[in-house]
Design a protein around this nucleic acid. Structure first.
Length: 222
DNA sequence: AATTGCGCCAACCGCTATATA
DNA sequence: CTATATAGCGGTTGGCGCAAT
């Protein structure tokens, strides 16, 4: 049906991978004639070589007439963040509050865009919270919404604590992540007792080490 | 111009809950 | 009551397009 299809059929011989326009039309015609549901009957009655689950998903996430197309608005984004705070990864519940959006779309948007934004905001908030112990104020925000560092004092890594090290690295840009991985391989026990490993910044500046009055807030000049 | 790396997102998979025969 | 089918959910995968090298 489609020479470009690269995903092999499943165990039962049903097509997998992206849907073609012709397949969509068959499914739309089926729904127009028989209504939504009974997806298992689709291949038998239409000859469409797709399993029931694939048909259902295609309808719910793409062919449904009430699907909203286009970018997620700022209002929607704000709502997703607030609902996620409230509900966690309950994507279908969250999607239920956003008319025309699917759980899959919201899950994807969270995983690719919002998770990063929320993390960066959290890091910036925590940096701001500790900034009174700094000798000189950094350009702010230290990390922009893309996870890249801004201003003269480009952050090489932000280590919140032992457990969050990898998380912090995932919010940094690619180049930063390379540096982070080098930093992560350091023998941190020798550099700092773990108890003060709570809040270190690495800046692309003259080498040197400075610890603020608060022992939990050390700044390491790179 | 060709290759590589990466982000995005559609689709799949495993699992559970519910409905139906 | 049991077996099977269907629906629903959330985590994960993999193809595609594009930017960087």
């Amino acid at each position: 049906m489609d020479s470009k299809k690269t995903t092999p059929p499943n165990k039962l011989g049903f097509n997998r991978g992206s849907w073609t326009a012709a397949e969509d039309k068959i499914l739309l015609d089926y729904v127009a004639a028989h209504g939504v549901g009974k997806w298992g009957k689709v291949p038998k009655t239409t000859g469409l070589n797709r399993c029931s689950r694939s048909c259902r998903l295609r309808w719910l996430n793409y062919l449904r007439p009430d699907i909203k197309r286009g970018n997620i608005s700022e209002d929607e984004e704000d709502l997703i963040v607030r609902l996620h705070n409230l509900l966690g990864n309950r994507w279908s519940l969250i999607a239920g509050r956003l008319p025309g959006r699917t759980d899959n779309e919201i899950k994807n948007y969270w995983n690719t865009v919002l998770q990063k934004k929320v993390k960066v905001k959290s890091i910036n908030d925590r940096i701001k919270c500790k900034s009174s112990t700094r000798r000189t104020e950094p350009s702010t925000p230290l990390i922009n919404e893309h996870g890249s560092c801004t201003g003269k004092e480009r952050i090489e890594a932000v280590l919140i604590n032992e457990d969050e090290m990898l998380d912090a690295s995932s919010s940094l840009s690619v180049g930063d992540r390379d540096v982070f991985e080098q930093l992560a391989s350091f023998d941190t026990d020798r550099l700092w007792p773990r108890s003060i490993f709570d809040f270190e910044f690495f800046f692309e500046q003259d080498a040197g080490v400075w610890g603020g009055d608060d022992s939990l807030a050390s700044v390491v000049w790179w």
